[in-house]
Amino acid sequence: METLRDIVLYIHLIGFAVLFGSWLVEAVARRIRFTPLMTVGLTIAAVAGFALAAPWGIDHELNYVKITTKLVVLLIIGALLGIGGGRQKRTGSVPPAMFWAVGVLTLLNAGLAVIWR
Rank of each mutant, 00 (worst) to 15 (best):
I76R: 02
L62H: 11
A110C: 08
L107R: 01
G111E: 07
I32G: 11
G41M: 01
F16E: 06
A101P: 03
D59H: 14
V65M: 12
L4H: 00
I58D: 15
G85K: 10
S93M: 08
I32V: 15
V73T: 08
T91L: 10
I77M: 04
D6T: 13
G103Q: 01
I58L: 15
R117A: 09
R90F: 08
I115V: 14
G103P: 01
G111W: 10
R33S: 14
L19S: 03
I14D: 02
K70V: 01
E26Q: 15
K89Y: 03
K89H: 02
T68E: 13
G111R: 02
A29T: 14
L62G: 03
V18N: 03
I76W: 12
I14Y: 05
A79E: 06
N63L: 02
F34Q: 07
R90E: 13
N109I: 04
L107S: 09
K89F: 11
A27W: 10
P36K: 04
A113R: 07
V114P: 08
V72Y: 09
G103C: 00
A27C: 03
G103Y: 06
R117I: 05
L75P: 00
W23K: 03
K70W: 07
Y64E: 12
P96R: 02
A53L: 09
S93N: 12
G41W: 00
M1H: 13
R5H: 10
G78P: 00
L108A: 06
E26T: 15
A51C: 12
L105G: 02
F20R: 04
M1E: 14
L9C: 08
L42K: 04
T69Q: 06
G85S: 09
I115A: 08
W100C: 01
G57A: 11
G78E: 01
L24W: 11
F50H: 15
T35H: 09
F34H: 07
Y64I: 01
W56A: 01
H12Q: 05
R30N: 13
M98A: 06
G103H: 11
T106Q: 05
L62C: 01
M1L: 14
F16W: 12
G111P: 08
K89S: 10
N109S: 02
T91N: 11
A110Q: 01
I115T: 10
A101C: 08
G57V: 06
V28T: 12
L13W: 00
T91Y: 05
V65I: 04
W116I: 09
R117F: 06
L13S: 05
V73A: 01
L108W: 00
V94A: 03
R31M: 12
A29R: 15
V8S: 02
Y64S: 11
A79I: 06
L71G: 02
A27Q: 12
V73K: 00
Y10A: 13
P55Y: 14
L19Q: 00
D6L: 15
V28M: 11
I115N: 07
L13I: 05
I58M: 15
E2R: 13
T35W: 10
T35E: 10
H12K: 07
F34G: 10
V102S: 03
P36H: 07
K66C: 06
E61S: 07
R5G: 06
